[in-house]
């Protein structure tokens, strides 16, 4: 583990140095990555300029759900970057040389692919999350703080598992890329409290399981009586989703037969 931490740090430093060589590109990337997140948050602010509550949840409670869900997503992308690029490896034949390296694929590929840009976006989501925790009174209760930390872990696990499942499915079904993109198009809606959606959409978001990346675990931390069952199950669901993701990855690696370069 220490070896991997060192490799990760070294690779990250090299990437930071490379970024410093492309200043315009770096500032463009950082600015635009931050901008689209700010505008997504601004949408929540506009909604709450009309209503005090959405589905029974206040602006800061919704901001906390949003923060945990996307902090989990970006931490997953930073730590397990391979998951997000797995389809490229399977599709373009990148695993031809990746598989022969004397190291676990998920780790070394994630080391190679980790984007320093994520540090900025993670800081942004972390700031929103902490601010929301202050304004929802989470810090008044050590148990609530603990449950928010558990919510974050659950979010990372669910995100990593979902990403692995969708992007590694390319090994069997090349068009799974489209499904993955279709699912990611719905990602933005994890910011809405499920209570504001009709029952069929609640079931859909629970089954997918986007609702476990923010809504259920945060609802459990803020109001344990509401949604206690799915809220309490958030961490087990996260572990299960991640486990399924890793199993799919292993099966996909076994299935891989080198497809070579395919132009899309």
């Amino acid at each position: 583990m220490r070896r991997w931490s060192r490799l990760y740090a070294e690779s990250f430093t090299i990437r930071l140095k490379a970024m410093a060589q492309y200043r315009f590109d770096t500032w463009l990337g950082l600015g635009s990555n931050l901008a689209w997140r700010v505008f997504r948050l601004a949408f929540i602010a506009v909604i709450f300029s009309f209503v005090a509550q959405l589905g029974g949840w206040s602006a800061w409670e919704v901001a906390l759900m949003w923060g945990i869900s996307f902090l989990g997503q970006d931490l997953s992308h930073l730590l397990f970057a391979f998951a997000l690029h797995a389809d490229d490896y399977f599709y373009y034949g990148g695993l031809d040389y990746a598989k022969v390296r004397p190291a676990p694929l998920l780790l070394w590929a994630s080391v190679e692919l980790a984007q320093p840009d994520h540090l900025l976006t993670i800081s942004f989501y972390a700031a929103v999350t902490v601010l929301a925790m202050v304004n929802t009174g989470v810090f008044a209760s050590p148990l609530a703080v603990l449950l928010i930390l558990v919510a974050l872990v659950a979010s990372i696990l669910v995100r990593t598992g979902m990403t692995l499942v969708t992007y590694c499915s390319v090994a069997w079904f090349s068009r799974a890329r489209s499904v993955a993109h279709g699912i990611s198009a719905l990602n933005e809606h994890t910011k809405y409290p499920l209570d504001a959606l009709p029952v069929p959409l609640q079931i859909f978001m629970t089954a997918l399981p986007f609702a476990f990346t923010g809504f259920y675990p945060v609802a459990f931390a803020l109001r344990p009586a509401d949604h206690w069952m799915p809220g309490a199950l958030s961490l087990p669901v996260g572990v299960l989703t991640a486990a399924v993701g890793f199993v799919i990855l292993r099966l996909a690696l076994r299935k891989y037969q080198s497809v070579g370069s395919v132009d899309v």
């Binding site: 909604i47 009309f50 209503v51 005090a52 509550q53 959405l54 589905g55 489209s178 499904v179 993109h181 279709g182 699912i183 198009a185 719905l186 809606h189 809405y192 504001a196 959606l197 009709p198 959409l201 859909f204």
Partner: peptide, 23 residues
Amino acid sequence: VGLGATLLNTWILVSIWSVIRSG
């Protein structure tokens, strides 16, 4: 797949604005 995602996106936004409008 794109049609499915657009239908769901639109349905969610219609639902959310219905809730906002009612309040």
